[in-house]
Each structure stands twice: as structure tokens, then as C-alpha cells.
Design a protein around this nucleic acid. Structure first.
Lengths: 347, 347
DNA sequence: CTGAAAGCGCTAACAA
DNA sequence: TTGTTAGCGCTTTCAG
């Protein structure tokens, strides 16, 4: 037997109206900043509302207005540093604008397929922010069917607004840093190309790697790419594969700092001096990068969340998007202690 | 000018009712599993609902029922590994039970005081989950005033249900590990006692440290405690302080893995062999602990979120809480590579 | 087991 | 500028 309090009477808009001596609609208008209210009527209403400690019922206003006042944020794994930073960035923008943040972890909790099949977002959000997920046609269709604005962080999705960095350019800048130090035998360790989460990112960073080497006129074989599952463990596997090979490169570019940190750990265990014997550079500027003293390419993660949320708010405001709606934020090389010239000076 | 679609007509419960040849109330009952519906009526209703791809309006059912179907999760910093793991654990339980998860980051976004003053949770959640925040009397009162069940992760709050680990025992087990290895000069690096986020945790882990030393009959001065701000940077500061001191301990117990990892980094830079010259042990089993090959005390973080959410669901179900509502989960020593006997064998 | 009726508390035309 | 009038789409007594 449920012991629910018998619907404790909240103060309602009519209570406020009565106390202020106006109608409910006037209260509604005053409270929401509708301009068609005289200054002193508004003042009286605000006073009455505050006297009664009135809090509007979101459910009622949602039902009446059709707006939910909530934004869905969809992430693959909210525990990953990158995603949690994006969420925080988005939250700050959304909260300021008065929106609630509904979190959907499709990687871990519900499962991606289930999520797109059930579409739990239906009827409960005014807009959706999708973080770092490459969507297939069906998934995109399911999102579009919601009929609300959608924006993306980290992946370019057709004409939808979005925010990201130039992963290819960032990767190239990492490689150029190594080239400038004199390295000519550089390997990349990277995520697997079929991982639905980082697919586009992986492809772009690999492309940057390859391009930078080509521009330096290095032979193709100078740039090996070893793939493994994304993350620390993947980084460990990948570097082990390199260590097992015949020729050890003098530098390694890791697609992510997590992979770089995993690699560093294995190299340390193997007694290989970094950066004396081998340089390592990562990508992201993860919060733990300083712990490994890792040289890396920094990207503004929180700001991507913030900007993507802002794009959504603009769309909800009815502002037509102009031109390319994809915002590209800059990356920045952060040199720490894991990169140095190769052991034997070359070229 | 807003280009909103003129309230695109969603299929409503009456559409379903018409198609199934029953009343709206029967549809409502059928869809929510109310037992007072005949099997084949229910079947017809479900069929009709599915035919029409009916999705109930949360706003309407919230307004009518008074239940919001959402749970507020309040964390200080959702980007911290610990908190994000708790969130994921909670989400999996909540989602399964059909609740939405409303995320509130009070550390970074709104600010703690603002949060408790404005209480944005009012009228929008059926229950609240508060993670790792020691609340003062006013804050607790503000929460209680919501009139909904509240549960806690990581801090014991009066008679409210909650989940945590025995931090004191966990800390003691870490110290005993060091003692068994033969260490007699052990320092602790820990967060500052006035940090509102980890206050209770810090106190409990310090107590465990002190107790274990006392039980080993070591002189008081054997156990120094150096405090610094929580986190990687704090760990760096704290170990630097120890390094600057006259006598270096042979082992360090860090209150958290973040602090331990920060310390490890400084020790490595200083050229001090770990664990040869100095052992280091942490607490938490952070996802990055393997990267530092860090010996630590593991706690089940995700499960704490899950259990706390489950307690909340039970309360919402009207189940009376019995006995001590605080669930204590076990910790476990995880020995990796940063602990070893002290350089010079002692007593 | 099922239906009718009465709101839940607010917003949004439309008048005044 | 303000009030009146209808709902928004569901749940929930209360009858039958």
C-alpha cells in the first residue's frame, strides 16, 4: 500500500492571482517576462508570488504550452572524460537558459539499438544534443522523426548544426612536431575503424597522420598504423604489438591520450626510455595527461559542449541557421616531457 | 518570428480508445498494467496503441497523476571519475524502472549556494539522489522541504537511506598492507579537512590511517599527514612538501588515487624509485590506476550508484525502510606495482 | 471489469 | 494592458 501524501496542495497560479488582485493569465504573463504587462502590475504579481513562495508546475506549463523545457543529451559513455566534459559544458549553457538536462547514456545503460528503437526522448525534450556518435541512416531518421532541433558534438551530420575540432589538422600538427624533432620513423596507434563511437574521429586523425608524413616526403612505410580497441587497454595492446615487431619506431603518435597513457605504461615496464629511446604524443589533453607528462594536442572539450548547446538554444529561439552550421574550434599543441629528438640524429 | 509547427497533432489516448473500442480510462489502465482489466481488453488496447504508434504525453500524465517520473541526481562535479561512475550506476537502475534522470552539477554550473537557494528540483522530481556532499543543516532542510525521498552516496545523513563504503576500514587495510611489507615510517597525503565535497571521506580515511598505525604500536610521529587540495595537483603539492622535509618516509598512503597518481608523477620526475625507495598506495581503484601500476584499495563505485537508486525506488514504492538504511559495501586491496618492502629492512 | 465526469495547473487565443 | 474562455492529454474517483 502506497503511503502517498494526499497531493499536498501546492500554491497555484490562481492563489497568486487572487493575492495580487489580477487574473491568472496576468500572473502567467508577468512571471514569464511577457512585455505586455504594466510595470506596477508586474511588481505586484512578483511580490505576491514571492510572498506565497510560488513555484510554477512544470508539468502544467508543459502540457499547456507544448514545450517541455528539457533538452536530451545523448552520449555513448558518460564516464569517459571527454564526454563528461562535454556534458558539463552543455549543462552550463542549458541551465542558464532555463532548460533541464535529461541524460541518456546509450553505450552502457540502455544499449544503442534499444535506444533508437524505443526513442525514449519522444515527447520529453525540445531538442537533442548528440555527442560523438556516428549515426547510420536509420538512427538519423529516428532522431529526425522527433521533429526537434538536433545538434552534434564531434561528428558532422549533414546539415545539422554541430561543433568539433579539425581532427585531421590536429593530428597533422602532432606529427609535424615529431618531424621537426627529427623523427623519420613514426608509428600511429589508433582505435579500430569499425568502432561506432569514434569512427569519424579515428578516420580523420589517421588521415592527418598520413598526410603530414606524405607532405614531409617520407616513404609510405615510415608511417605504420597499429589499431586496437580504444582506451588505455587498447593503447597497451597496440604498443605491445609494435614492441613485438622487428623494427621499433622512434616516435609514436597515439590517437587519444588514453591510448598514449596505456602505451607509456607498457614502455615504462619494458624499461624503454621515453623520450630518450622513443617519443610519444597523444591527442585530447586529457586531465590525466600531466600525470604522464604527456605531450599532446589539446582541444577545448567543455567549450564544444557549450557551443553545441548554444546552437540548439538558437534553433529553439527560431533563429534560422546561416551558412555552414558546423563550428570548428582550434586545437593547440601542448609540449610536455614525452617528446624529444630521436636517439640517433637523422636527416 | 518563431517558425514552430502548429502543435503537430500527436496521437492521443482518445485515438487509441476509439480504435480499441473502449474508453480512455480503460486505455490508461491497460497501458499502465492496472490489474483490473480483462486480458483481451488489454490485448486489444495494446494492439491499437501499437498500430497508432501511440506515445503517452509525459506532461499530461504528470499533471494528472502528480508524479513526475523523474529523479534528480545531484553531484558536485560530474566530470570526476567517481561521480560519473555513480551516475551511470544510478542511471541503469532508474532507466529500468522507467524514471528519467535529471542531472544537477552543483559544483561547477550553478554553484552550491545558488542551487540550495533556488532549489530547481522543486516540482520536477519524485526523489533525489545526492552524491558525496556533506550537507549543512540549511542544505539538508532545503532538501527535506522538497517532501520527496532522498538518498545519499558516500555520506551518512541522519536517518536517510544511503550507500557507501567503510572508508576508515579501507584506509586501515591500505596501511596494514604497508605495515606487513615492513614499513614503519608511513606518511599520508590527503585532502583538506574543510573541503565540503570530501570532508567526511577525508576524515574517515585519516582516522583509518591513524588507527592502523596505533594498532601496530608505532610511535605517533611515524604517521605524518600532509594535506593539500584534492586531486592530481594536490597530490603533487603534498608529495613535494614531503620531499622538501627532512626525513622521507618509506611509504605514502594517498587518500585518493588521483592524489597518488599526482605524487607518482613528481616522484618519477625527482628520480626516486617507486617502490624501491618509496612505496605508494592509493584509494578508489580509479580507471587510471593501472596506468600508474598503482596499488590501491578498490571500492565498487558504480554499484554504489545503483544501490542508492534502488533504495530510492523502494521508497517511492512505499516500502518502509527497516533498520539502518545505510548500506555499506566492501572494499578490496588491489596490489599492483607501487608497493614493496622498504629499502632497508626494519624490525 | 468498464465508462463518465471532473479535474491536474497552466497557457493562449480572443475579446474587451 | 488585462480578463475570459477553452483547452493541453492524461488519471482518477465514483458509479454501474
Amino acid at each position: 500500500v502506497v503511503t502517498r501524501t494526499p497531493a499536498r496542495q501546492h500554491v497555484s497560479i490562481t492563489d497568486v492571482a487572487r493575492r495580487a488582485g489580477v487574473s491568472a493569465s496576468t500572473v502567467s504573463r508577468s512571471l514569464r517576462g511577457n512585455p505586455h504587462v504594466s510595470a506596477d502590475t508586474r511588481a505586484r504579481v512578483l511580490q505576491a508570488a514571492s510572498d506565497l513562495a510560488y513555484v510554477p508546475s512544470p508539468a502544467a506549463s508543459r502540457l499547456a504550452s507544448g514545450r517541455t523545457g528539457a533538452i536530451g543529451v545523448v552520449v555513448p559513455f558518460s564516464t569517459r572524460w571527454f564526454f563528461s566534459e562535454v556534458i558539463v559544458g552543455a549543462e552550463s549553457a542549458l541551465r542558464t537558459a532555463g532548460y533541464d538536462l535529461l541524460l541518456y547514456n546509450i553505450g552502457e545503460t540502455v544499449g544503442r539499438e534499444l535506444f533508437f528503437a524505443a526513442m525514449p526522448l519522444r515527447r520529453r525534450v525540445d531538442a537533442v544534443l548528440v555527442v560523438a556518435s556516428s549515426l547510420d541512416a536509420d538512427e538519423r531518421a529516428a532522431l529526425d522523426a522527433l521533429g526537434v532541433p538536433v545538434s552534434f558534438v564531434g561528428t558532422r551530420q549533414g546539415k545539422h548544426p554541430g561543433v568539433g575540432v579539425d581532427d585531421e589538422a590536429g593530428a597533422a600538427s602532432a606529427v609535424r612536431h615529431l618531424l621537426l624533432l627529427g623523427h623519420t620513423d613514426i608509428a600511429m596507434i589508433s582505435g579500430e575503424p569499425d568502432d561506432p563511437i569514434g569512427r569519424e574521429t579515428t578516420a580523420a586523425r589517421q588521415a592527418g597522420f598520413t598526410r603530414a608524413l606524405r607532405e614531409a616526403h617520407l616513404p609510405e612505410r615510415a608511417g605504420r598504423i597499429v589499431t586496437a580497441r580504444w582506451g588505455v587497454t587498447g593503447g597497451m595492446r597496440a604498443i605491445e604489438e609494435l614492441l613485438a615487431g622487428a623494427r621499433l619506431p622512434t616516435a609514436v603518435f597515439a590517437e587519444s591520450d588514453e591510448m598514449a597513457l596505456g602505451a607509456l605504461q607498457i614502455l615504462r615496464k619494458a624499461g624503454l626510455d621515453v623520450p630518450g629511446r622513443l617519443s610519444v604524443i597523444g591527442f585530447d589533453d586529457h586531465e590525466m595527461a600531466p600525470v604522464g607528462d604527456l605531450t599532446t594536442v589539446s582541444q577545448p572539450v567543455r567549450e564544444q559542449g557549450l557551443r553545441a548547446a548554444t546552437l540548439l538554444l538558437a534553433a529553439l529561439d527560431g533563429q534560422p541557421q546561416q551558412g555552414d552550421p558546423f563550428v570548428v574550434l582550434p586545437t593547440r599543441l601542448v609540449v610536455r616531457g614525452t617528446t624529444a629528438p630521436p636517439p640517433v640524429a637523422t636527416g
